[in-house]
Design a protein around this nucleic acid. Structure first.
Lengths: 361, 361
DNA sequence: CTGAAAGCGCTTACAG
DNA sequence: CTGAAAGCGCTTACAG
C-alpha cells in the first residue's frame, strides 16, 4: 500500500528527529521538500498555486504531498502572512433560533467569501461576551461581528481603539462608533399595534428586553409611540423587562396576569420570551386569544404550528447576516462602511384574534 | 489620558518600522519589552504566569502591557507550543435544534476545560463536511468532534490514520474506529411503539433518516423489531427515507397520505422532519391525532406548545455533549476512551391520542 | 524556473 | 532572577 510506505517514511523521519518521544508523526513542508527533492520555497509555491514552477517539479511535489498525506499548517501560514481567513461572530444566545438563523446566514456569507467562522456564544452574559471578544481577537480573526449583550464593553471599546474591524449586528452600543446592521422594527410594530387596536384591544402590554439593550429600547419606544398616536394609555405596569430568554417571558407574563387590571394583549420582544409567555398562559389554562392575545417579535418556523398559530414580526435574518459580512469585509479593506437598517414584516396569524370576530373591551 | 499617550507611542514606534505604510499599529511583545526595559523572555514569563520573576520586574511589565493595550498573538503562541486550546465541532445542521443544543453543551464543556470551540456546519452535505474537517485540522484544533453526515469520508479516514484525536457524536461511520458518544433510541422506540399499540394503532409508518446514516438505520431497526415482537406488519411503503431536514418530512408525509391504505400513525426520526410532517397534515386540514397520529424522535421546547402537544423521544443532549468532550480530552491525552451509549426518554403528550380515548382501527 | 535566507511573534532550554 | 538565542512551519523578496 503506497500510503503505508509514505507514512512509515514519515514516522522514521520523525523518530530521527525526536528519538525518545512516542512519536505522533506530523508531516511538515520540509518533509515534502525532502521527498520531492526540492526546496520548501518551491513546495510553498506549488501549494499556493503561484505561477512560475516547472510542470515536472510541480508534479513531483504533488506526488510527495499525496504520498505523505501532507496537511498544511494554517497556524504557521497565518503567522507569516498575518491573516487567518477567519471571521468571528459573538452572538447573544445560541439557543435562540433568531441567532441560530443569523449564525447560519453569516456562515454562508463568510464561506462564500472564502472565510471560515468561529462562533462564540455569549449566552447574554457580560463576562462571557468580554472573554470571547478577547479570545477571538487574540486568535487574530480578520474581522469580528458582535451582537453586544450588554450596555458597556471595555473589550470592544479597546478593540475599536486599536482599529480592529468590528461590526455590530442586531444590537448596538452607545458611544461606540462602528457600523451596525440590524432590522428596524418601528414600522412593523406600528402595524402590529394597529392590528391589535383593530381587533378591539385597548389594554396592551409589552415584555421588552433589558433596559440597556438597544433593540429592547427601540422596540419599546416604537410601541409607546404607536399607542400614543392612537391615544391609548400605557400604564407603567404594562412595561415589563425580560432578558430575552425564555424564563423571563414566563415570569413577566405571570406578573402581568397578577395585575389588578391585566392587559388583554401582550407583545414579547423576542421569540424566546414569547415562548415563555405562552407557556405560562397554557399552564394557567388561559385561552388564546380569548383570554389573552399574544404576539412576538421574531418569527420562527414553529409559530405557524403552535396552538394557536402565533402572530409575529419577522426579521430579514438572512439579509442581516449577509449584509453584515459585506460590511465587515469593507472595513477589513479599510474602506468606510455605512450602518444598515432593514425592514421587518408583520405576519398576521391568529394569536391576537381573528379579524372575523373583532371584540370590544 | 494615559492610554492615548501609550497608543501614540506605539503608532510612532510602528511608523519607525514601516515608514511608508498607513500604519495600523499592532503591539508586539517586543514593544512591551522595550517599554518595560526587559527582554521578551521576561515578558513572556510574566504573561504566562511562570514563577521566578522579581516583583518589581513583574510590575514594570504589567504596566507596559496595560499602557500599550498589548494583545498576545495566540497564533504565534500556538505555532511555538504546538497547541491551540481549541476544539472543533462539525455538526449536521445548525438549524436543527438538536444540534444547536448539542453545540451549546459541547461549548460549555469545552469552555469549562479551558478550550474554545470552532463550529462547522456541514448542513448535511458531504462536501461541506469534508471541507470543514480539513479546515479545522489544518487550523490545528487540538481535537475534533464530528457528527458524520455521510456514509463515507476520506477526510476523516485520513485524519484518523494520522492519529488526529477525533470522536463521533450522535452518528458513526462504518469501518472507522473512533469512540462514539450518542444516545441509544432502541428502548425509547420500543416504549413509543407500545404506546401507539395501546392506543389502538396497527398501521404505523416511519419517516426515517437517509439509508446510510447510522442513527437513521438504528432507529428504523428498533422500530421494525418492536413491531415484529407485537406481530404487527410493516409494509415497505410505510418505510420512508428523509434527509433529517424539514422539507423531506413534508414530502414523505404527503407520500404516506397518498397511499391506498395510509397509516394511522407516523413516527419521524428527527424533530425537523416531524415539523415538516406536521405542516403537511395541517395544510391538508387533517386532525391530529384523530386523522393521523404523529410522534417525533428528538424533543424540543416547542413541542409542549404545539397543536396538539407532540409526543416525542427526548435525547440526553447536554450529557451527550459533555461526555463527548470528556472522551475527546482522553484521546488528546493519548489515553484509550470507550464509546458511550446513553438512554433516551419517551415524553408522552397528546399527538398520538389520549390514553383516555383509546381507539381501534 | 529554483533555492538560500530572513522573518512573522511567540516560548523555552541554556547560561550566567 | 534575567537575557541571548534558537526554533515552531510557513512565505517571500532577493539572487541567480
Amino acid at each position: 500500500m503506497r500510503r503505508g510506505v509514505a507514512i512509515d517514511y514519515v514516522i522514521w523521519h520523525t523518530l530521527q528527529r525526536y528519538p525518545n518521544v512516542e512519536a505522533v508523526p506530523v508531516v511538515t513542508m520540509a518533509d515534502v521538500a525532502a521527498l520531492a527533492d526540492v526546496s520548501t520555497a518551491t513546495v510553498s509555491r506549488v501549494l499556493t498555486g503561484r505561477p512560475g514552477v516547472g510542470e515536472a517539479t510541480r508534479q513531483k511535489v504533488a506526488d510527495a504531498v499525496e504520498r505523505l498525506g501532507y496537511r498544511p499548517n494554517a497556524v504557521a501560514r497565518s503567522l507569516r502572512v498575518d491573516t487567518t481567513h477567519t471571521l468571528g461572530l459573538v452572538i447573544g444566545d445560541i439557543c435562540n433560533p433568531f441567532f441560530t438563523e443569523l449564525a447560519r446566514a453569516v456562515e454562508d456569507a463568510a464561506n462564500a467569501e472564502g472565510y471560515s467562522l468561529i462562533l462564540g456564544n455569549a449566552d447574554e452574559d457580560a463576562d462571557r461576551q468580554e472573554r470571547y471578544v478577547d479570545v477571538l481577537l487574540n486568535r487574530r480573526v480578520d474581522g469580528l461581528l458582535v451582537v453586544p449583550a450588554v450596555a458597556h464593553s471595555d473589550a470592544i471599546a479597546m478593540a475599536v481603539r486599536q482599529h480592529a474591524p468590528i461590526v455590530f449586528v442586531d444590537r448596538e452600543l452607545p458611544g461606540i462608533n462602528v457600523p451596525v446592521v440590524r432590522s428596524n422594527g418601528r414600522k412593523a410594530i406600528r402595524d402590529l399595534v394597529e392590528h391589535l387596536l383593530t381587533l378591539g384591544h385597548r389594554r396592551i402590554a409589552i415584555i421588552s428586553g433589558p433596559e440597556q439593550a438597544s433593540t429592547g429600547v427601540e422596540r419599546l419606544t416604537a410601541f409607546r409611540e404607536a399607542l400614543g398616536v392612537a391615544g391609548v394609555p400605557l400604564p407603567v405596569d404594562y412595561i415589563r423587562h425580560g432578558d430575552f430568554q425564555e424564563v423571563s417571558g414566563q415570569v413577566q407574563m405571570a406578573a402581568l396576569l397578577a395585575l389588578d387590571e391585566p392587559p388583554s394583549a401582550v407583545i414579547a420582544a423576542d421569540n424566546l420570551m414569547a415562548l415563555g409567555a405562552l407557556r405560562t398562559l397554557r399552564r394557567g389554562g388561559l385561552r388564546i386569544p380569548q383570554d389573552m392575545a399574544l404576539a412576538s417579535f421574531d418569527d420562527s418556523p414553529w409559530f405557524e404550528l403552535l396552538d394557536p398559530p402565533m402572530t409575529a414580526i419577522a426579521q430579514p435574518t438572512k439579509e442581516i447576516g449577509s449584509i453584515a459580512v459585506q460590511t465587515l469585509l469593507e472595513l477589513m479593506h479599510r474602506r468606510a462602511a455605512p450602518s444598515r437598517l432593514l425592514d421587518c414584516r408583520l405576519m398576521v396569524r391568529s394569536s391576537c384574534g381573528e379579524a372575523a370576530n373583532v371584540r370590544k373591551n
